[in-house]
């Protein structure tokens, strides 16, 4: 595992509303094998921490979050999946449709870009999420 600096930028556009940019930066770890990439990092959120596990394999990006907010989203271009977003003591059903998921070439580390739309409680929003991990 290699120590990395993880930067995530999400541009979220609700169906009825202006785009909002949410960005964060945390320390994490990256493991690269010919078959897959595994990126882990912990981020503080409202009500605690979230441990993120991001796996890239066969063109599929799996983002597994555990902690104060838990969810497991499989991003596969063109697919719609149902996701349970768990924020104790509630679990909130969410639908995620992946428009595009890409592995980004970066000079030192790795990056992913996902374009997806999500529907929670009848509200739809489109998100462009970019995650870049750079060796420390």
């Amino acid at each position: 595992m290699e120590r990395v600096q993880v930067r995530r930028v999400s541009v979220i556009t609700p169906d009825a509303g202006e785009p909002e940019t949410v960005a964060g930066e945390w320390e994490g770890a990256l493991r690269t094998t010919p078959a897959e990439l595994l990126l882990t990092f912990t981020e503080p959120v409202e009500g605690g921490k979230v441990f993120n596990r991001v796996i890239w394999r066969d063109g599929i990006l799996t983002v597994d979050r555990r902690g104060a907010v838990s969810s497991r989203i499989v991003f596969r271009t063109g697919e719609t999946v149902g996701v349970d977003l768990t924020i104790p003591p509630l679990s909130i059903p969410m639908t995620v449709t992946t428009e595009e998921v890409l592995l980004l070439p970066t000079p030192n580390g790795v990056g992913f870009r996902v374009l997806f739309s999500s529907v929670i409680s009848g509200e739809r929003r489109r998100t462009e999420m970019t995650v870049v991990a750079t060796p420390v």
Binding site: A68, L90, I120
Partner: peptide
């Protein structure tokens, strides 16, 4: 409400 209670936005909405 979410900001006042330091609560997740989706949870606060519900």
């Amino acid at each position: 409400v979410a900001a006042a209670l330091g609560m997740n936005e989706y949870k606060a909405k519900l």
